[in-house]
Simulated scan of single mutants.
Amino acid sequence: MSGKNIALLYQALSPPVIDGLRKDGKPGGYSDGGADIAFTLQQHHRSVITPSNNPSAQVVFDWVFPDTQEGIDAALKAGATHLWLNTVLFEGHPIERVPATIYKIGQTTKGMQRFDDKFETNYLLSQRNLPVAQSYLVGEQVHAGILSLSELQKKIEQGQMSFPLVVKPVRGRGSQGVSVVHDFSHLKTTLEQLQQEQKFGSYFMVEELLEGKEITLTIMPPIKGSDRWEAHSNYWALRPVHRFNQKDYIAPYNGDTPVTENSAAISVTELQSVEMQAIVQACVKAAEIVEARAPIRIDCRANKAGIFKIFDLNMKPNMTGAGRPGREKQDCLSMISVRAEGWEFIDLLDMMIASSWR
């Protein structure tokens, strides 16, 4: 990793409202994961640029720069050659103004803004014949592509959807704002409450509930080989992770319950099953379609027949990892996959550095 001076960015900027939709920021702006990454890189003698000359393992903001113009300029002035985009990007973000010589670890602004729209993304994937959970947009102000509640009720009465259903923000984050509704009255009150809160926007997704096993897959970008991993000329999948101990089909917020307590990598035997291979191949294809520049995570669930469908593609997955004192249980879902293959956090980080772009 010689010649690479890496600076971590965290989310200090609030994403703009896009088409009437808002993505609620994560408390701390992913600074915890950024500190995990920077600390681990430094522990393994990678060159890390930090705001503090003597960063403390317990102080997250000693390790990460804000993703503001001032923060980016400070990182570059300190000598950063690689900016780790551990933040939510959007078109017009200051990262677009960095010199062309600077490498980036993360997604493009255009790609993240477009594919952070869960409905548009799922629609695109379904148009490419990938298995995707059925959904509709529902809102108070009806226009092209957005149904009124009464129009959705007609579709339910006609058998085009059936309860239970999932209600969720179009530009959501994790399980925030996600509910399972069991009848029309429950659906109506849930949508009304979300609209009154004005936290996520003026319309929402109503999606079929897949009642079978839930898994999540981390899809990696193409990468050159090393003495620790094979070369991959195409996108490739890490071991799927089984999600369990959910409440009414919804995973608890990872800030309350570490994912290491309700998730585990599937066995090699299960990975070879026809159903699992089919969804792995579908998720790899999905990463191709969205042209991911860094790891993405795709959540899938099986229907009653055992067929898996995609329901959420995440362009900015959480990327925390055990390493800093007191963070022993903070491996993210991608790290559960990584450890199942015999790798460590530093191996995942080095793979991500190897897929940097400019």
Rank of each mutant, 00 (worst) to 15 (best):
R171S: 12
L130F: 15
L147R: 04
V178W: 02
Y203S: 10
L152G: 03
G159L: 11
K104E: 08
F204H: 09
H186C: 04
R128I: 12
R171V: 08
R97G: 00
F204Y: 12
H186G: 01
E120C: 09
K154F: 05
K118Q: 08
V178D: 01
K199Q: 12
T101M: 04
Y136I: 02
L152F: 14
E207R: 13
Y136P: 00
T121W: 01
T190H: 01
V206L: 02
H143T: 15
A100W: 14
P164G: 06
H182T: 04
Y103C: 07
Q158H: 14
Y203M: 07
L165N: 02
F200Q: 13
E140F: 11
K110H: 09
K168P: 02
T108R: 15
V181S: 01
P169Y: 01
Q195C: 09
E140Q: 15
G111D: 09
G174D: 07
I105S: 05
V170E: 00
G139M: 04
Y203V: 06
Q134S: 09
V142M: 10
K118L: 01
H182V: 06
Y136H: 12
S179Q: 09
D117F: 08
E140V: 11
Q193R: 15
S175Y: 06
I146Q: 14
I105N: 01
L130G: 13
A133R: 03
V132L: 03
L124A: 08
Q158V: 11
S126E: 11
V167Q: 04
G159Y: 13
P169A: 13
A144H: 09
L187S: 04
E197S: 13
L137D: 04
Q127F: 03
K118G: 11
Q198F: 12
I102L: 03
G106F: 06
V206I: 06
G172D: 00
V181D: 01
G139A: 03
M205L: 09
Y103A: 07
K110A: 08
H186W: 05
Q176T: 02
K118E: 11
L149R: 08
L152V: 07
S175D: 05
S162P: 01
A144M: 08
P99R: 10
K110E: 10
S148L: 05
Y123D: 04
E151W: 06
S126Y: 10
K155E: 12
R173P: 00
Q196I: 12
Q198A: 15
G174L: 14
L187K: 03
E157P: 07
S185V: 11
L187Q: 03
Q198C: 13
N129E: 14
L165E: 03
L191H: 01
R128C: 15
Q127H: 07
S175I: 05
A100V: 09
V181Y: 00
I102V: 14
L137S: 04
E157T: 15
T109D: 03
K188D: 09
K104Y: 08
L125Q: 13
Q198I: 14
V167W: 02
K118P: 02
D183E: 04
K188P: 00
V166W: 10
